[in-house]
């Protein structure tokens, strides 16, 4: 398995995360729609880590699965953490200035979504998608 880490410290890093994820999705032969969904989810989560977690990092992992490729992204921040995960995943909930779709929206764009957080212990969000989803 191949892995790469991108730091999320400024708004420009959100663009870098998108480019890194686009890059592996293209190489993993994701369809255009699959690529767009994954990159959009990454953008949401990177912004989340920056705005709510005060920055962090994402690990981009790539591994072959059957005839396709799985891309797994692990977003880690060391911010205040989330007390009520259910509430944070509800559409429309926000503590910032956005539409409050960051977490819940990202979850709908990927195959797998997992979140771990507690007050004072930061937040870790893991998502993954596998190419070749359209024709199984």
């Amino acid at each position: 398995m191949e892995a790469r880490v991108v730091t999320i410290a400024t708004e420009l890093d959100i663009v870098r995360v998108r480019q890194a994820v686009r890059d592996v999705a293209v190489r993993g032969r994701f369809s255009l729609v699959e690529q767009t969904k994954l990159v959009t989810a990454a953008s949401e989560l990177a912004r989340n880590a920056l705005v709510h977690g005060g920055g962090g990092e994402v690990t981009v992992q790539v591994e072959p699965v059957g005839t396709g490729t799985r891309v797994r992204l692990v977003f880690v921040d060391h911010g205040p953490g989330i007390a009520d995960l259910d509430q944070a995943l509800t559409d429309g909930f926000t503590t910032g200035s956005g539409l409050g779709l960051g977490l819940g929206g990202a979850r709908r764009l990927v195959d797998e979504f997992h979140i771990e957080s507690a007050p004072g212990r930061g937040t870790t969000v893991t998502i993954s998608s596998t190419s070749g989803g359209a024709v199984r």
Binding site: L32, V33, Q35, T40
Partner: peptide
């Protein structure tokens, strides 16, 4: 673009 439109709809936007 089509892929962007699909993603926005999936995103709930």
């Amino acid at each position: 673009r089509p892929a962007v439109a699909i993603t926005l709809v999936e995103l709930g936007l």
